Simulated assay, not measured.
Amino acid sequence: MLSEISPTALHAWLEDTTRPAPYLLDVREDWEFAHCHLANSQLMPMHTVPLQMNKLPDDVPLVVICHHGVRSYQVGQYLVQAGFDEVLSLAGGVAAWADQVDPGMPRY
């Protein structure tokens, strides 16, 4: 089952050096990613996921990211159904990340 993670919980996880970092999968379009993204996130636009999911690691948790959390939730559900074990969707997407974690992040 797919779960969501809040921006503040993801930030705490990324700052915790005792915990293995998740794979940050950004499923927005190229122009959105170019405008703003979380550090160390990897771009794989939503429509390309079915053809490229074999490139995703299956040994670390995946955190799926989009603008407001809708696309990431859909992709996360798809990945869970495809057999990935640990998949989380960033609740509220990069918009919530900018509101709760990084007020300097560009918005759109």
Results as ranks from 00 to 15, higher is better:
80 V>R: 15
107 R>H: 10
82 A>V: 00
61 P>I: 00
88 L>W: 04
16 D>S: 07
90 L>Q: 07
57 P>D: 12
50 P>D: 09
75 V>W: 08
46 M>L: 14
83 G>V: 15
4 E>N: 14
95 A>F: 03
27 V>Q: 06
55 K>E: 12
72 S>G: 05
97 W>E: 04
28 R>I: 02
13 W>N: 00
8 T>N: 15
50 P>T: 05
87 V>K: 01
29 E>Q: 07
97 W>R: 12
22 P>N: 05
98 A>F: 05
52 Q>P: 01
96 A>D: 05
51 L>V: 00
27 V>N: 03
38 L>T: 01
41 S>E: 06
104 G>Y: 07
97 W>V: 04
87 V>M: 05
95 A>G: 02
67 H>F: 05
38 L>C: 10
85 D>E: 12
47 H>M: 13
19 R>M: 08
17 T>C: 02
19 R>I: 04
14 L>E: 03
79 L>W: 01
26 D>R: 04
23 Y>G: 02
44 M>N: 06
30 D>Y: 09
42 Q>L: 03
73 Y>R: 14
15 E>K: 15
85 D>T: 08
66 C>V: 09
99 D>Q: 14
95 A>E: 15
20 P>F: 02
101 V>G: 14
2 L>A: 06
65 I>F: 09
103 P>D: 06
98 A>N: 11
27 V>I: 08
26 D>P: 02
80 V>K: 15
25 L>Y: 08
2 L>W: 08
78 Y>K: 14
39 A>F: 01
31 W>T: 10
91 A>S: 15
46 M>F: 11
50 P>V: 02
10 L>Y: 09
102 D>H: 05
94 V>I: 15
47 H>D: 13
5 I>V: 14
41 S>D: 03
32 E>F: 01
39 A>L: 06
86 E>R: 08
39 A>N: 03
46 M>N: 04
38 L>N: 06
86 E>G: 02
76 G>K: 11
48 T>Q: 05
69 G>Q: 06
89 S>Q: 07
99 D>P: 00
88 L>Q: 10
24 L>D: 04
22 P>L: 07
86 E>V: 03
27 V>D: 04
68 H>K: 07
89 S>T: 04
91 A>K: 11
34 A>H: 06
43 L>M: 09
63 V>C: 04
82 A>T: 11
60 V>W: 05
98 A>E: 11
71 R>P: 10
3 S>P: 09
34 A>T: 12
103 P>N: 01
42 Q>E: 10
4 E>W: 06
36 C>H: 13
58 D>A: 14
66 C>L: 05
